[in-house]
Simulated scan of single mutants.
Amino acid sequence: MIGQKQQFVTIKGTKSGLSLHLDDSCSFQQLLKELEEKLSTNQQKDSPLISVDIKVGNRYLNRQQQDEIREIIRSKKKLVIGSFESNVLTKEEALEWKKQTDITTVAKIIRSGQVFQVPGDLLLIGDVNPGGTVIAGGNIFVLGVLRGIAHAGCYGNDDAVITASVMKPMQIRINNLVSRSPDNQDAGNEMECAFIDTHENQIIIDRVQALPHLRPKLTRLERGMM
């Protein structure tokens, strides 16, 4: 009995278009050959423009290899690359990811005219005075009075939050949304947090006790120790 030929390219339909799963154990040339054959066979002349997501598993593709795959996709007039997804990171990508997920802890006062920025989360032990600015790629935690400007999720993170012992900011930003502290807000004795309400697409300020429910990933360390 003749065995069935191993498939190196698997094509699946998705809500957004097509998903191509490329085998990560064969040679790259084998992959290109089968990709060309399958896309030519499945091409439909009357179909609308289709987005294609490329999933390569545990294979690392350099820039030239990605371009070769792009060339094959682009040669099919109704197909366009949506994304490349790989389980493999370069050392530089891993270091950049680590920067953006690290917590930077500082004890200082951010005075008027000063700007303090970190790539990941910021834990500031001190105040942000009016005219001072703190910016973070992730979350901002202020153990002090926030009277200046705070911008969390500055690289496009809608899930970022801002917390402060006393929340009286001139302005708060999360990703590209902006809000100001209400003029009639009285400083209370409880820590507060600011987050994006995705249903209303606006920044909401609430008690910090709401965070474990709103952003459960903030407690990942606790879950990992259980």
Rank of each mutant, 00 (worst) to 15 (best):
H199C: 13
Y155G: 05
L211S: 00
C26D: 09
L89V: 06
E93K: 06
N201P: 05
R223F: 13
G13A: 11
A152D: 03
S86P: 14
S19F: 08
T219Y: 15
G153D: 08
D67M: 15
F28S: 12
M225F: 10
S16D: 15
Q100T: 03
L146Y: 01
R223V: 11
E36F: 04
R111P: 09
I54R: 08
F84K: 04
E92N: 15
R111F: 15
H21F: 05
N129A: 14
E34M: 03
V88I: 13
V118H: 06
L124Q: 04
E200T: 15
M191R: 06
E92S: 07
R74G: 01
T14D: 07
L35V: 03
G156D: 00
Q4I: 13
E37M: 10
Q100C: 08
P212A: 02
L95C: 07
A107S: 13
G138I: 10
A136R: 06
S40G: 07
E68K: 14
K5Y: 14
S25F: 06
L49N: 04
V52D: 08
H151N: 05
N58Y: 08
A187C: 12
N139L: 04
L146A: 08
S165C: 08
I11T: 15
I204Q: 06
S179Y: 03
E85W: 04
L122D: 12
P169D: 01
Q171P: 00
D67I: 11
E37N: 02
I172N: 07
N176D: 15
V80N: 07
L39G: 05
T104K: 09
G132R: 01
L61T: 08
A94F: 03
Q30T: 03
V128G: 02
Y155K: 01
S83K: 13
T198Y: 03
L143H: 06
E68I: 03
L177W: 11
S83F: 09
L218P: 07
E71K: 12
E34C: 11
I125P: 05
V142P: 04
G138H: 14
Q44S: 09
S16K: 07
M1Y: 14
R207H: 14
N175Q: 04
I135C: 11
D197K: 00
Y60A: 10
A194F: 06
L61N: 02
T41V: 09
N58V: 05
D197C: 02
L122I: 00
I54Y: 08
N139A: 14
M1C: 13
V134F: 14
D186W: 13
F195D: 03
Q100W: 02
I69Y: 08
V134C: 02
F195G: 02
G126V: 09
L95D: 11
D158Q: 12
I149P: 13
S47L: 01
G131E: 10
R220E: 12
V88H: 06
D158N: 08
